[in-house]
Each structure stands twice: as structure tokens, then as C-alpha cells.
Amino acid sequence: MTTFQLEKHVNYIKSLDKKTDFDSVVMEHLRMSGAYWGLTALDLMHSLNDMNGEEIAAWILKCQHDCGGFGGNIGHDPHILYTLSAVQILALFNKLHILDADKIARYISGLQREDGSFAGDEWGEIDTRFTYTAVLCLSLLKRLDSINVEKAADFIVRCRNFDGGFGCTPGAESHAGQIFCCVAALAILGALHHVDRDLLGWWLCERQVKAGGLNGRPEKLPDVCYSWWVLSSLVIIDRAHWINKEKLRDFILNCQDQERGGISDAPDDAVDVFHTFFGVGGLSLLEYPGLKSIDPAYALPVDVVDRVFYGQKN
């Protein structure tokens, strides 16, 4: 059986920061999320201490705008997605206290619409991804009271479909990534009773294809990123035992670049930090030995989430 190349993945992620190839420019606008994926994967592999938290925190603050929101990189516009990544990274380094939580909360609550939905930024694109982002970010900052949480949950419910899943907006088709956002947001809002666990759990477990990997919608190809989106949703609603975990584990392991580290979307494809994170996150949810366990809703290591909500362990 293929084994997990922990050391190679750690080195791969560490090498990304210095890369200057074409892909690194393509990704420049979402460096904040890239950093979150890489650093969280490192933490799951017990290697966060190798990174300079002070330096990273200083860079993060340079991406913040006067409105309170963060851009994906220095000089890029503020957006709710990168605001969450910034908050998540600071949670990893136990540095949430350097943030002006009220200022960020004002930015996010300003993006909530009358119907409870959230826009991604001042330009008004609506998507349940942004609801998750808003809810998660405010929960980590203990500022959920700055938005209308009932309406936020109501909007998610309006995006629920006949198959038990959720889409981007009311009427949109169910998609595993979107389902993760909606289920996790409802979990954090204490509103999981809106989810039909058996109906959704069945749709989600049918995402597993014969070869073991998971797809994001019926009759699509499997992809490592769904190891996170499908599996975390299944864990939140306690239906993860409805899939074959061994087969999924082997699929993820087969997507590793055994020589140079990193994980790709499918076997033999080019690796990237996004799929490396979702692969490691998936293995963590599968209780792969030697990895920290990850919280399925906050998408941060469990010890980080517990530290945020319950303080330092003895």
C-alpha cells in the first residue's frame, strides 16, 4: 500500500513561498487563501512551528483595508473570502488578539442583505459560500451577534433542494462544495435541524465512485478536493460511516506526488497547494495516523478551535 509522504509534503508546501513560476503569478490574487491552505496543512502535519508567525501576521495586516476587510494580497481589493482566510491564519498562530474584531464585524455585517444572504464584497455577488464565510469568521471573532443569524439560516434553507443538498442561490443545483458551506454554516448557527440527515447523507455517500474517490455532483469525475467537502459534511451530520473509508484513503494516497511531494486532484495530475490541503484534511477526517484531527466545520485543527472557544489546555 502507498504510504503518506509527510516530510515531502511539508517540504513542498514550504517551497511554495519562494516559487516564481507562471502559476505563482496566476495565484497571486488569492495568496491569502493559499497561505491558509498551506499553513493549515502544515499544522495538521505538526509542522507549523517551522513557520514565522510574526512575519506572516505582519503581512496579513498589510492586506487589510480601511473598511475592515482583507484583500487576497497587498494592493488587491477587500473580499469576504480573504477576510476569512486572514482570520483563520491568525487563529492558527494564536494571534486573533491583534485584530480589531469590531471593525471586521462591521465590514461583514455590512455585507448582509435584507433576505439574510451575504454579498462577497461591495459589488454584490450573492452566494451561500459567502454566508459560510461570514458566519465562520464572526464565530471565530465571537461577533455573531452583529448579524441577523435567523435570517442567515433562513436564506440557506431557501437554497435547499429536493435531494437534500444546497446550491449557491435559491433554485441552484446541489453541489458538494456548496453543501459543505451550508451544512457547516448551519452547524455553527446551531441550526442543523434544517438538514435532512438521511436524505442528504445518502446523496453525499453516493458521491463515492467505484474506484474510491468522491465526486462533487452525480455522474462527475472524482477529485481530491471533494475528499474534504463531502467527507466533512458527512462528519458534521454523522453519516461518514456510509462510505468506504479505506477506498477513499487509497484514492487520496494515490494522488500524491511520491517524489516531489504535494497532492493533485486525480492520480498523475500536477499537484497544487489547494489539493494538498484538501487531501491532508481528508486523511485527517479519515483518522490517518500521524495527523492532527481537523474540525469539520471550522476547517481548522481541532486543538485550534478548542483553544479559541475554551482557552488553552493545561
Partner: peptide, 29 residues
């Protein structure tokens, strides 16, 4: 099990229904 599949099935600080559960800080909330 390192992964707790019932973590989100009841009210806690994580689900924002209970605030700072009894201040438990010994990892046994």
C-alpha cells in the same frame, strides 16, 4: 476516535448556543 462525529449534534460554544461552556479549560468540556 480522534474525529468526533457527534461534535455538532448538540448545543455548545462551537454552535453558538452556549457561551463559553462552564469555562472548562482542562480539555474535557
Amino acid at each position: 476516535h480522534p474525529v468526533d462525529t457527534s461534535r455538532y449534534s448538540f448545543p455548545s460554544a462551537l454552535t453558538n448556543e452556549v457561551r463559553d461552556h462552564l469555562g472548562e479549560r482542562d480539555g474535557s468540556w
